[in-house]
Design a binder for these strands. Structure first.
Lengths: 140, 140
DNA sequence: ATAATATCAGATAAAATTATCTGATTAAAA
DNA sequence: TTTTAATCAGATAATTTTATCTGATATTAT
């Protein structure tokens, strides 16, 4: 009953992928995203607000308002969303929670674990949010 | 502010590593472990009780009671403790939280992510809890 | 103007995780 | 036998995460 990223971060990733799949021009409301991704509506709003503040997406108020990507999908990497929501600690911290596992004194699995998280980090840094471009996202 | 494993699981790993480092014969009290690892005392007890129930460690009540490994340290893998506390879902679930990312319909990063978690799983399955045997664990 | 529909901001609630308390039981030592 | 020191079991509390509510503001259409 645990996951690599927080629910907030998972939802954030999904929401941005949704926006990316809609094309950069059209605005999507929080409700539309919520309905299509089965994310609680108000929670969706909150997360989209956070991402707006971070500059990843742009919001527009009013009657035909909504959200869209701030820049081209190919320029937004998955790691940008992770960094904005969960932060990057998970890629730095000791897997067993040892606080002094760093610098001079490293735990016995430190090196191997760093290989794991660096592989994850590399993937998230390479993949941009247009990965779903030709895939019907609402099946997920 | 997230981690791969829950705090409970991190503490559990640390506690079992501590027991392993003490040798299989001697009993350690929850208080001793708590003091040496800076884990809240009562929480330590709870986690040790859980691990006792799972058969990873053995408890002995009474005046000179405490906990020790149920079997030889070399036979207890890190993954056994993870499985007992957090479970193995983290190695199976979609990294972006897509519920239907499985079987026939897989998300675009599914394959790469599985490589990441399988690398982690492999490491945790290979390493047994005697990894700290010649390292002063209280520095961590 | 007014109504409708969206974001936005802040408070609140619910649930899960993390941590603590209390008292019972067990077993050894005095 | 009594005291002491440990686990054990269940309740409770605190904190964090997840989710919801309320009302304000912005923007477009009528």
């Amino acid at each position: 009953m645990s996951s690599f990223f927080s629910k907030k971060c998972e939802y954030g990733l999904q929401a941005v992928l949704y926006l990316a799949a809609q094309g950069k021009s059209s605005l999507c409301s929080a409700e539309e995203i919520s309905n299509n991704l089965n994310i609680p509506k108000e929670f969706t709003s909150k997360i989209l607000q956070d991402l707006t503040e971070k500059g990843i997406i742009i919001s527009r108020k009013g009657r035909v308002g909504g959200f869209k990507l701030a820049i081209d999908a190919s320029q937004i990497k998955l790691i940008d969303i992770v960094a904005a929501i969960d932060g990057l600690d998970i890629f730095k911290n000791c897997v067993m929670g040892f606080h002094n596992c760093n610098g001079n004194q490293k735990c016995p699995v430190h090196k191997e674990w760093m290989e794991v998280v660096e592989k994850a980090y590399r993937m998230l840094s390479q993949r941009s949010v247009d990965i779903f471009n030709n895939i019907p996202l609402d099946h997920f």
